[in-house]
């Protein structure tokens, strides 16, 4: 899975994904410190993520293994909001400190 930060939203009415009540977020890839990399993805939100939050998202066909996306053309969805990341025993990201 990829770490990313929610930087915005993508609204579209003309769609062919057949996902009920889909909410598409604009995600910018980031590293374990929350530093963004300039690479953007559109991802289906499955956990109610909000702007500024660090998340992890799944890419590719595994995305079709949730109820909402089963047999749907979704190749990126947000599966978790990150609270904390530690690397070699040291906290490198925490939601409180942002």
């Amino acid at each position: 899975m990829i770490l990313g930060k929610i930087v915005g939203t993508v609204v579209c009415t003309q769609r062919a994904d057949n996902v009920e009540g889909a909410r598409f977020m604009l995600v910018e890839k980031c590293d374990q410190h929350g530093t963004t990399t300039g690479e953007f993805h559109v991802a289906l939100d499955q956990v109610g993520a909000g702007p500024g939050e660090v998340i992890f998202m799944s890419n590719g066909s595994p995305n079709r293994q949730t109820e909402r996306t089963f047999d749907k053309p979704i190749d990126a969805s947000i599966l978790g909001i990150v609270d904390m990341i530690d690397e070699s025993g040291k906290v490198v990201y925490s939601k409180e400190q942002g």
Partner: peptide, 17 residues
């Protein structure tokens, strides 16, 4: 590679781009 949506608006940090 299949187009699945035509975008109406993109917003970043609350501002439409």
């Amino acid at each position: 590679a299949t187009i699945i949506a035509i975008v109406d608006t993109i917003e970043i940090g609350g501002k439409p781009t």
